[in-house]
């Protein structure tokens, strides 16, 4: 696990609630802290209306949990998380993650394997 300063450096430019959620997990090792982290990163990556390609459908303002997430975005979130909280996730475990809820649940369950403080 990184130090709080290293987390802030790695997440520079990300929304503050995402940074806070990660710092909260670092402090408490409470997996539920990662709920806000995962959903916040997904929002940051995908729910962005600035510069939207006009041919794309409008993104939902508050994405439903069952909204699908493309496989590259899933891989990016996991790549970011691996670098932040020191877990390793096998590719096989990612293949069935289709929605925001799938990813949120998977991440928090995986984080339970990290010993509590």
């Amino acid at each position: 696990m990184l130090t709080p300063d290293q987390i802030r450096t790695k997440l520079k430019g990300y929304p503050e609630p995402v940074v806070e959620a990660c710092l909260e997990f670092e402090r408490t090792r409470d997996p539920s802290a990662l709920n806000d982290f995962v959903l916040g990163v997904l929002d940051f990556y995908t729910n962005d209306q600035s510069g939207r390609d006009p041919s794309e459908p409008l993104p939902s303002e508050s994405p439903a949990d069952n909204l699908e997430v493309d496989s590259v975005t899933v891989a990016e979130v996991v790549f970011l998380l691996e670098g932040l909280i020191g877990i390793e996730i096998d590719d096989e475990n990612l293949r069935n993650l289709r929605t925001r809820e799938d990813l949120r649940r998977f991440v928090t369950e995986t984080a339970r394997s990290i010993p509590a403080r």
Partner: peptide
Amino acid sequence: SDPNWATWTLPNRYTLSRKVLR
């Protein structure tokens, strides 16, 4: 200048989504 795209700044007249920048 930073390899982390989330820190990049562009002139306001360009509005590229984070999906594109990534």
